[in-house]
Design a protein around this nucleic acid. Structure first.
Lengths: 238, 238
DNA sequence: TAATTATGACTGACCAGTCAGTCATTATAC
DNA sequence: GTATAATGACTGACTGGTCAGTCATAATTA
């Protein structure tokens, strides 16, 4: 039986040698080399290394096709170790996504909710989305939610509760204040705050599928949308 | 080892009995009951039944987690039969998607490219997208491309060539003519025709993940976007 | 030493893909 | 028209590779 084509063997990224595991992110070995960390610290490092490796593998292959053997190898750890830290494959996956949610949220919360003009606020959001999500490994998290979320209702739920809902509240609040201030008119944006992210999601999916045929500048796309929106509903030309 | 949660046993849809296979879509048995089809016709029907069943299974579980045993059962056919019609699982999957591309395209081609005002043209497109794709089983095809496309480069390529590229050409053409006619101004839409579909893709993903928490009216969202766009770049208020 | 953490060979369920054989249909011979 | 042969779609038990999860043992730390 030929191997499933969808699951070629893991390509230990860039460098060939597996023996010295992931020089960059401190795996078990690194811990041994440096100061003898406390048990807790070492254990925490191992935990992190596994999550780190799992992100790479899940992002590249999807949940079902990812082998824990590969995750273990990439993390520089034996397979059994994974089961010391996580109940099973699914738990690892969910914890991985949940862990990555914090940083996603922080960006949102740190955005000045103050009374900057709506346009500046929204441009800041778009910018943040492009730089801090699409421009980093965090984008894999969002991709995983898009591609696997339907199969993991609990994940979709958490993501909705912790990210989507909050983001919508923040944006709607900003929109309302802008209306009160007389910056914009109409209720379109209150009804559909999603219109601000739509280009971002499209860019994410596009990049996933079609980047090699025709690259798409996510930043430019989002800026174009913001331009359109404010040209449309801003009270008279700026 | 507990079963993967992502793969509950297939639920032979609605009716319980498997003995009389898929009363609706004519399977082998149906052929016996009605006029004795020719070998060719029966074979074609089986082929179609397998693709039909495969769409349901792949859509529900994704490529990797779908079992051909389930596809066979759902199609009312023995597993071996699948291999009479398709080389392997991957071929079945790709052929399934490719088969469904035609209808997707036809909609595009049948759209009157004539010289209707751009706004009417775009509204027609949005409407078509909502009714003929999001509103039918075809949406599963688009979902599969979104969720599995990254793992099937050949599929992404075909989809890009056969759908995306053509659609972009059509839309860009319409935009250019509208500019020539003096309907709109600016080059935003020529640079980013994607802005028209972005809300559609967002709606698709949203529906996949968050519909149960907060339904999203795809049609309304797309109409809102069209409103914004034309409020922004239409030459003076209509 | 005791407790915690890590190891990796091992097990068994699972499932893609196979193949020898069945049977209805079509073609040919009489 | 009838008998016989050829065809090939269909079947489903079977095989072998794969991989999640286990556990007895080893290493490390306090």
């Amino acid at each position: 039986m030929p191997k499933l084509p969808a699951r070629e063997r893991a390509t230990p990224r860039a460098t060939s040698a597996r023996p010295q595991p992931a020089a960059g992110s401190r795996g078990k070995r690194a811990a041994v080399r440096t100061a003898p960390k406390s048990r807790n610290a070492k254990s925490a490092a191992t935990h992190a290394a596994i999550i780190d490796a799992a992100l790479d593998e899940f992002a590249a292959r999807g949940f079902a096709a990812t082998r824990l053997d590969d995750v273990a190898r990439r993390a520089g750890v034996a397979k059994g170790t994974i089961y010391v830290h996580f109940r099973d494959k699914e738990t690892l996956f969910e914890e991985l996504v949940r862990t990555a949610l914090g940083p996603l949220l922080r960006g949102l919360e740190e955005t000045p909710v103050a009374d900057v003009p709506l346009r500046a606020f929204v441009e800041g959001l778009a910018d943040h989305f492009v730089k801090e999500i699409l421009g980093t490994r965090r984008k894999h998290i969002v991709r995983l939610i898009v591609t696997e979320g339907a199969r993991f209702p609990s994940l979709a739920q958490i993501y909705y509760r912790e990210v989507i809902k909050r983001a919508m509240v923040v944006v709607r609040g900003a929109v309302e204040r802008a209306i009160a201030r007389g910056e914009i008119e109409g209720d379109t944006l209150q009804r559909f705050p999603q219109l601000f992210v739509a280009p971002g999601i499209l860019a994410l999916v596009w990049d996933m599928l079609f980047a090699r045929f025709e690259p798409l500048d996510a930043g430019a796309l989002m800026r174009a949308q913001v331009d359109l929106v404010f040209a449309a509903i801003g009270k008279r030309r700026k």
